[in-house]
Design a protein around this nucleic acid. Sequence first.
DNA 1: GTCTATAACGTGATAGAC
DNA 2: GTCTATCACGTTATAGAC
Lengths: 204, 204
Amino acid sequence: MPATQLRAASPTGSRTGTREAILALALDLLQARGFNAFSYQHIADRLGIRKAAVHYHFPTKADLGLALVAHYRAQFEDWRGAQMEKGAGPLQLLRGYMAISLHFLRDGGKACPLGVLEAEFASLPPPLREAVTALDTELREFLAGVLEAGRRAGIFRFDGPAADKVLVITASLQGGLHIARAAGARSFTRMLRQLERDLGITND
Amino acid sequence: MPATQLRAASPTGSRTGTREAILALALDLLQARGFNAFSYQHIADRLGIRKAAVHYHFPTKADLGLALVAHYRAQFEDWRGAQMEKGAGPLQLLRGYMAISLHFLRDGGKACPLGVLEAEFASLPPPLREAVTALDTELREFLAGVLEAGRRAGIFRFDGPAADKVLVITASLQGGLHIARAAGARSFTRMLRQLERDLGITND
DNA sequence: GTCTATAACGTGATAGAC
DNA sequence: GTCTATCACGTTATAGAC
C-alpha cells in the first residue's frame, strides 16, 4: 500500500501534493520509528525540500501529529466504507482488519500508528493524546460490533462481553507488531492463527 | 514495588547506592515515558546529582539501556526463583505474571520495559536490540512451559501450540498496558479477565 | 565518585526574501 | 509555497579539577 500521494504539479513549479506527501511519509516514519524518533529534518531530507517548507504545512509537531491521526482515521473510514459496500460479513471484516496489521508488518516492520502513539503516550502533546483516545475508542467500537454480530451468527465462539474480547484482540495486534521486531515476522503470523483458534475459527 | 534502592552512606559523603538508584529511576522513566523520552538531565535532576555523575556510572545511553535490560532480567529471575521455591503451580505462575503487569499499570501507568523497547526498536542501538530479543525469548519460553504444564494438568484449555498461545498473551499484556493509557485502567483489568476466560479459567 | 565547564550536535520553531 | 538564515534549547558526551 504505497498510499495515495503526490505528483500532479500545479501550473507553477510548486507541487500541490506536498502536504499529502508529508503526511504519507510522516505516517511511515511514525509507524517505523515512533513519534519522538523522527524529525522535520528527516521529512525534509527524504522529500527533497527544506525544514521550513514542512513547517509551512504543519507549524508545530503537535499539528503534524493531529493531522496524522486524522489521516489514519480517514484511511480507516475509507476501508470500512469499501467493506460495507461489498457487503462483507463478520469473518471477512475481522480478517480484513487483521490483514491491515499484516500489511504494516510486511511493509518494513511498521507498527500500528495508534499502538506507537499509545506506547509514547506520556510524552505526547495533550491535544494529540485526546485524538488518540478518540480514534482508539472508535476502532474498538467498530470491532465490538463485528465480534458480536459474528457470535450471533455462529461464526465466532467466545465467552464474555464482545467489548472485552476486542481489548484482547486489539492489544494482541498492537503488541504483536512490536514483538515481531524482536521475535521475527513469523511470530506475528503464528499469533494471528492463535487469535483465530481462540475465536473457534476452523482453518481447513 | 518501590524497588530496592539507595540509602546506606559510605564513610565519606558519597553514596555507594547511586548506581542502583540510577537504575531504579531510569527503569521507571523508561516504563513511563519510553527510551527516547528521558534524558541524563532528568535522572540527574530527580536524584539531586549532576549529569556527569550519571555518565560516570553509565558512559553512554546504550550502556544504560543494556544495564536496564539486565536489571529487569534479574528482577524476573528473582521472582521466578521465589515462585519455584514456594512450589507455585501453573495457575499461580500465570496469575503472578499477569500481576506484574497490573502492578506496572497501577504504578503511574507504567508499561512493560520490553514492550516499550520493542515499540521503539528501530531507533535503539543495535546491542540493546539484541539484549531485548534475548530477554523476550527467555520470558516467552518460561511462559510456554507454564501454559503447557497447565494444559496437561487440565487447568488451562486452549487449542494450538503453547508457544503460539504465549504470543497472544504476551502481546496482549504489552499492548494492553499501552492501550490503558488511552482507554483507562479498567480496560486492562477487563482484558485480563478475558484472557482468563479464553484459557477456560472459571472465576467464582 | 562527584563536580564545573564545555563541546558538538540535533531539535522544533520563526523571520523575512523570493 | 519554498527558500536562506538564524535562534534558543535540549541532548549525549568528554576533559579536568576536587
